[in-house]
């Protein structure tokens, strides 16, 4: 190898394509959530519904209760720290229709605050407690936001990018 290796330019984006169920779903979403301010997008093979944090409960309740959507199963709640903002992902799945969707909302890093969806799916309880533990997201109206994975009195949010992972010593 005589030539110096070239550094790669900007990373390419992953190819996104929906299957039939995803296409049907994104069409259905446009009609069934007309009155809520949402944006429908695609990430790889999933329908992505982005909305403001104030609409989360309304979107989730509609997604669960509308018979066309019937998202009865909350797969997970995951938070991604993009430094300027935190992105909360609600991964949904419908056991009867077998289609899937992600509901995304962005929260400010300083005061991340969103209403809880425990009234929609009881399974959201621990997922939200975990997100509160690791990222400091406050879920308004959550029945019990005590630390779940961390011990009481732990300072800082270890999931966030600003929290050192390798330099951190426990004792």
């Amino acid at each position: 190898m005589t030539q110096p290796r070239k550094r790669e330019a900007a990373a390419p984006e992953a190819q996104a394509a929906l299957d039939d169920k995803g296409l049907n779903l994104s069409a259905a979403l446009a009609t069934h959530m007309q009155d809520i301010d949402i944006k429908i997008d695609v990430a790889l093979d999933e329908v992505v519904l982005s909305t403001g944090s104030e609409n989360i409960v309304a979107v989730c309740r509609r997604a669960k209760e509308d018979p066309e959507l019937a998202f009865d199963y909350l797969r997970s709640v995951s938070v991604v720290d993009y430094i300027e903002y935190l992105e909360v992902n609600y991964h949904l799945f419908s056991l009867s229709k077998r289609h899937k969707m992600v509901v995304k909302t962005n929260l400010s890093s300083d005061q991340p605050c969103v209403a809880t969806v425990t009234s929609v799916w009881r399974g959201a309880n621990w997922f939200e407690r975990e997100a509160h533990d690791l990222f400091g997201v406050v879920f308004n109206g959550h029945p019990d936001l005590r630390p779940l994975l961390l011990y009481e009195g732990f300072e800082g949010y270890p999931g966030r990018k600003e929290f050192p992972s390798h330099e951190y010593t426990e004792w």
Partner: peptide, 19 residues
């Protein structure tokens, strides 16, 4: 490449998914 993927698999205990 840039992007995100969520994959569910059936582990012996249930839905084991990676995001």
């Amino acid at each position: 490449p840039k992007g995100e993927s969520y994959v569910r698999t059936e582990s012996p205990r249930g839905d084991f998914a990676v995001f």
